[in-house]
Amino acid sequence: MKKIYGRPKYLKPRKFHYCAGCGHSLVHKMLMELVDELDIADRVIGVAPAGCAVLAYDYMDIDIVESAHGRGPAVATGIKRSVPNLVVINYQGDGDLAAIGTAESIHAASRGEQIMTVFINNGIYGMTGGQMAPTTLEGMRATTAPKGRDPRREGYPLDLSSLLAQIPGVVYAERVSVSTPRGIRQTKKALEAGLRCQLDGEPGLALIEVLSMCPTNWKMSPLDSCKWMDEVMSKKFQVKVLVDRRTKAIKKAASGNVD
């Protein structure tokens, strides 16, 4: 009998600590499938964020270094410059990438570091218990915005990916969502495109923003979370390719050899 589906080779046989309905485990799984499919297990290195995914090394069977909150792009820069042949996956959350690490995010992009940033956006601080994030939507409640985010009080949600996409050092930026099976399939395609930027030597940073559910801190059921993401969150953060400056992928497309 032929085995057609199973646990990805590089996903450790361990139970996720993530809450029911959380998107992290889906992204972890897809990344490890891609590590196998692209055959890069011996030259991939992950930068794990401060946040719920800090224990990524418990699940991903690849070399992983932990980073302080917001500093992932700087750590990834040091790694990539030291060993350019490595495929660097810099995994970050919204508070991480768009608040405390804004400078690091923007400048790694502006230097065109050849890394892939996976940006998990769930509009809230998960690990610390549901505080307001830079990406918290207007009206959305958080433990530090108990009346709901009011722009006059807490300011506006920040779409950092769209800002980053304007920087020439970003070769590819796409926003995807893991709220539906279709969205999950597209997420995997986007992550593959992001990884291929490094394999193809594209001269810059790949950013894949993944809209992801946090039922625990949204105080919703997992199903309602998916629905809310489709109906509300993805209206503010639209799922689409934000920028595509890839030179090699475009050349391949022109010659009919599309990935």
Partner: peptide, 10 residues
């Protein structure tokens, strides 16, 4: 801050 973390990465 970024420079010390680049040191860490290298």
């Amino acid at each position: 801050i970024a420079s010390i973390y680049m040191v860490l990465g290298a």
